[in-house]
Design a protein around this nucleic acid. Sequence first.
DNA 1: TATGAATGAGCCTTCATTCAT
DNA 2: GATGAATGAAGGCTCATTCAT
Lengths: 194, 194, 194, 194
Amino acid sequence: MLDAAVKVFSRRGFHAASMDEIAEDAGISKPMVYAYLGTKEELFVACLHREGTRMMQAIAGAAAPDLPADERLWRGLRAFFGFVGAHRDGWAVLYRQARGEQPFAGELATMRARLVEVVAGMLDHALRAEGREIAAIDLEVVAYALVGATESLADWLADHPDADPEKTATRMMNVAWLGAAQLLHGVTWRPPAD
Amino acid sequence: MLDAAVKVFSRRGFHAASMDEIAEDAGISKPMVYAYLGTKEELFVACLHREGTRMMQAIAGAAAPDLPADERLWRGLRAFFGFVGAHRDGWAVLYRQARGEQPFAGELATMRARLVEVVAGMLDHALRAEGREIAAIDLEVVAYALVGATESLADWLADHPDADPEKTATRMMNVAWLGAAQLLHGVTWRPPAD
Amino acid sequence: MLDAAVKVFSRRGFHAASMDEIAEDAGISKPMVYAYLGTKEELFVACLHREGTRMMQAIAGAAAPDLPADERLWRGLRAFFGFVGAHRDGWAVLYRQARGEQPFAGELATMRARLVEVVAGMLDHALRAEGREIAAIDLEVVAYALVGATESLADWLADHPDADPEKTATRMMNVAWLGAAQLLHGVTWRPPAD
Amino acid sequence: MLDAAVKVFSRRGFHAASMDEIAEDAGISKPMVYAYLGTKEELFVACLHREGTRMMQAIAGAAAPDLPADERLWRGLRAFFGFVGAHRDGWAVLYRQARGEQPFAGELATMRARLVEVVAGMLDHALRAEGREIAAIDLEVVAYALVGATESLADWLADHPDADPEKTATRMMNVAWLGAAQLLHGVTWRPPAD
DNA sequence: TATGAATGAGCCTTCATTCAT
DNA sequence: GATGAATGAAGGCTCATTCAT
């Protein structure tokens, strides 16, 4: 039943989507939508939740925690872009909506935070394996940047129906891993003395 | 006068913002808003345009084309995060809005395309200086990822009022440049044979 | 439910009538008006249509085609003025509105054209019975004039609540039939040689 | 200066005409329009007044009171249709507007009443010359019908840019005079006994 | 005097949301 | 339990009308 909601939200955007259309598309009457899923906002959150959970599961299922870091990252990225590629007009557009509407900023921030945490955890794990360590905040920000870059490529993928998810994952891996690998080996960049 | 519009659009989002509130916030009456800036959509586009132009100028003014690539990138990033830091609830949120609302996707895509082009140009320039070359589409995607990571950190900066723009720029530079530098020297990552 | 709309349109005129007033007058809420009858323009057209149809039916029902021409004309006129007398603030004022507002000129022209056609047909029929014939355009214009005179008396009737519809019909018959009868017998008027 | 107002009212209709457009078309600023001619309604009345007066003068100038009745009627009609033909989009449309908008019904009724009075006077004069007489109210209604027929043909003329005013006047004269002449000679029509 | 600039008021229209059946 | 019917509330936009210059 959420399927109808996801479809309509994707096609129209949050505000332009009307409860009428969602109900009709779901084949039930509007009061039922309210009875089962509450307010329009709650409905959207529910959609977001389900899609987010599915995505996280896809990633988690692919990137087993006992693999080496680069392998985990690669599998995770591949799963992620695969998921987005398969739900182009589903998740990606829904996600884009959520970024803009304040009521959902929190929900989205939570989802992203989970991703960031995972990525940061990977980096941290790899660092410690090399006997190195960097400040938690730096770790978080770098992870945040990587997640941001990934989302950005997901947008790009959603906008290019003919693009290949796997190849996109490879490109992202190039950007992410080469930089991360440097960081892992202690190479850092410092601002010039001005 | 656009200031009021930017403020309200930032606080409420495009749809939730009412022309009434914008007018009141600007200290003028609604018909004046229409007289000066036209439709709500046109008003939003005007905001987007002004903020975008200002940002591009800030970046272009800082990153002179005759500097070495890393220097340009660093200065550009510093200017960018400085700008976002100074217009937290202005630009960043405006930008977030524009990503979500279909009517403005085009306007925004144009702005981002300019940024991507600049970054891609920088990378290409540096590559050629090393006698190397990569496919245009790869260049574009990598640039796209870097821009995405940067936007993502900008979001993070906008959400953390106490964070330091310059430090954020440094972090971004670490991620971007270390990875880019590797690419520039011919190091690439390849997916395992599965 | 159209009744309320007809009443308000009559009292205020098309533009001055507000959907609020129509809804209140109908004892329902505004969204219902939109749900049932659509746009203000569509609502007006619906009023026009219903009143027009009723009137045409009243006339057609009274003036059977197999009667002699003068009998048909008389019965038609009597039915017409009877109808207008019974719907004074309904049809007559509605009709006056429609004449003025461009969007409805077409709708009205169609109705009037049907009337003109009927009248012209009657005249033509009577002429042929006398073995005579006149140019189609002359027939049309004469019919047009008769219809105009009739509408004009309808206005007069609508403005004089105490006047008797039947008597008004008799007067119109005097003007119309005496002139028409002359024409039917070949008497025509020619402009002086100047 | 009224010219601009007449032009705009004709082209757009009363409500659709904006004071802005009128002012601009007149080449002066809006406050001047208000200073010279007051409210939009007053302005429209002024237009109506001027056009009406001009028309009455055209008719009065042509139909000298000392002519025989048929001659007067003919000349009056010719002058009238000539005037309408020369001011097609001016007077006719203005007139049509006035019929629909209640605030002007009074003004228009006055103008029409003057015409009716003139026509009724002519008929009465001719009747008395024949030593006959009919009730004032009957006279008025017949005159009203003739005026109505005439207005109706004026509308027709305004809608047919290629039609010839003089010919239209002749047609009207046929309808009006043949019927009127009968009345003048005591021929009347009576409703059948049912 | 003439005007640019400003506004109060209101209208059409649309939805998210809920009773009464 | 399910729905058709109904609505409160609000929003974008326009325009006749008037100050302050």
